[in-house]
Computed example of a mutant assay.
Amino acid sequence: MPIFMDRHEIPKEISAEHVAQMHKEDMKIEHLYNCKGMTYWCDEKRHTAFCLIEAPNKEAIQKMHNHAHGDFPHSIIEVDDAIVESFLGRIADPKVSKDTELNIIKDPAFRIIMVISIKKTSFENTMSHQLISDTIAYTNSIIISLEKFRGRIVKQKSDYFLCSFKDISNAVLCALEIQKGVNKTKKQSSSLTLNIGLSAGAPVTEKDSIFEDTIRMAERLCDNVKGQIAMTSEVKDLFESENLKLSIDDKIVKVLNTNSEKFLNMLMDYTENEWYNPTLSAEGLSKHLGYSKSQLYRKMIANTGTSPNTFIKEYRLGKALNLLNKQADNISEVAFKTGFNSPAYFSKCFQETYGILPSKYIQQYI
């Protein structure tokens, strides 16, 4: 049977003990609805609870909860148990809570999500073996820091890490150590850059996937904010409230306030839907986002470090690089698929950005 996770908004006066009692009531009648409660998480501070349940469908879970205690879940999503364990560390009750009369679990499902990206910024005068060597050095440094600060690797590629942290201090200190470690291993001739995005949130919102909003924000910070570490204002506030004698150094870390986060999401929502359209321009961005050209330029420089036109071009080139790596299309096809008006202009932009023509890139790196 499929596995689901649901979200309950609990009143301030409801304690973890009350939630445990509700879970107990579920267990008494779950068989009537062909459900099986696997475990739950309770966050008294944020007034939320999350249940992990094996069930035939969402409706069965709703009926079970309604019968047991009348508390209707606000959201229910289907999940993969391995992914849940990767993010949250367990898919069963903690050992300390087992075999007790009332299974009280004071364990919040709130997590800090870290996305790490290793990007190739240039291929000029750089042999493949050097890029591989540099990437391995970066990766080893990252893994050592993640292990030290108890970060859980949810997903890993050669140039990408998706990680989960239960502790806010560990997440931020890990990001700082990764940055420091990479700077030590970085060579003067290196054509790699490392970026880190940090966001925080709950596993179930109104979206369809676990931690979807939080992952998306961390990825957008990682991909679009210049500087090695970028984080939401919530992550900064949580860290500083937990570490009263420490503060985030804005010379090292870029922190987006709420308005900047909203702007970045609006920008990316539109760009992700229109990047392949050759008519996409700074003027179109300005009109859609509701800013004058000068306002948009200032916003873009402040939040992404690039002008609107450069942002669009770099986004398209990133997509083009992915397509070239797949070897499914020739250079002309890639150019038109990524919104460039001509293969010649695409090749010119590609060379200006990566230091090599796309034809030579294919010969040397694919």
Rank of each mutant, 00 (worst) to 15 (best):
T100D: 04
E147Q: 10
P56H: 08
A16R: 03
L267D: 05
K157L: 14
K245G: 14
G227R: 04
S15C: 06
P358Y: 02
H69P: 05
Y276P: 01
V115W: 00
C35D: 13
L192T: 03
S286E: 11
L296D: 05
M27N: 12
I116F: 04
E234K: 06
S158P: 10
S294C: 01
T39Q: 02
T214S: 12
V79F: 10
E30L: 00
F340V: 14
I116Y: 08
I252W: 00
F72P: 00
K254N: 02
D213R: 03
A218D: 08
A82V: 13
I136D: 09
C222T: 12
N243T: 12
P203S: 06
L289Y: 06
I136V: 13
E9D: 14
D107H: 14
S86A: 15
I331M: 08
C222F: 00
F263H: 04
N195Q: 14
M231W: 04
I29L: 07
P73T: 01
L173M: 13
E333T: 14
D107G: 06
I248C: 05
Q295H: 11
M266G: 08
K348T: 07
M268L: 12
F72Y: 10
A55I: 09
K226N: 12
L357K: 15
N259R: 09
T271E: 02
K184V: 06
M64S: 10
K251Y: 11
S281C: 05
D213P: 01
E272A: 08
M1E: 08
G37R: 04
K119P: 00
I331A: 11
L267T: 08
D134C: 10
N34E: 05
L173E: 15
S281T: 13
S145C: 15
N265F: 03
H65S: 13
K180Y: 05
D26V: 00
Y138T: 01
D81G: 00
H288I: 08
S164P: 02
R316A: 11
V253H: 01
Y33Q: 07
K236V: 06
D167M: 04
L32I: 05
A16F: 01
